[in-house]
């Protein structure tokens, strides 16, 4: 089982902590791209037929499958609207982002 990754920024205390080679030390999860969004997708689960198409076509890996139903991670959803466009039953609505 894979460990869950931390969504933290990496801070170097001093110059000595910086690696000699520019290598990556952590994931980009600290970058909450949800702030880019103007419209947000909302799934009406009563009409969901569990086809998994929204999960398959999400470019930001922001849709997870939990208990056999899609769940949107609003921390990272950029609001592109691909899921709403591709949904065969059109049960995903794009609504104006709340302030």
């Amino acid at each position: 089982m894979k460990q869950k990754k931390k969504a933290e920024k990496i801070i170097f205390e001093s110059e000595k902590d910086v690696p000699l080679m520019p290598i990556s030390l952590g994931p980009m999860l600290w970058n909450r791209t949800g702030a880019w969004r103007n419209i947000r997708p909302e799934i009406n689960l009563t009409e969901c037929i569990q086809c998994g198409i929204c999960w398959k076509f999400c470019p930001d890996v922001a849709i997870a499958i939990e208990n056999e139903f899609p769940v949107i991670d609003y921390d990272y959803c950029k609001g592109c609207g691909i899921c709403a466009e591709e949904c065969p039953t059109k049960c995903i609505a794009m609504v104006e982002e709340r302030k």
Binding site: K5, A7, M28, Q50, G52, V61, A62, Y76
Partner: peptide, 21 residues
């Protein structure tokens, strides 16, 4: 039951710097 056509393992994480869509 949900039948997914691709494996669920993800090697790409969220938070990337790509444009929308």
């Amino acid at each position: 039951t949900m039948k997914l056509s691709l494996p669920t393992e993800e090697l790409m994480s969220s938070g990337n710097l790509a444009c929308q869509g």
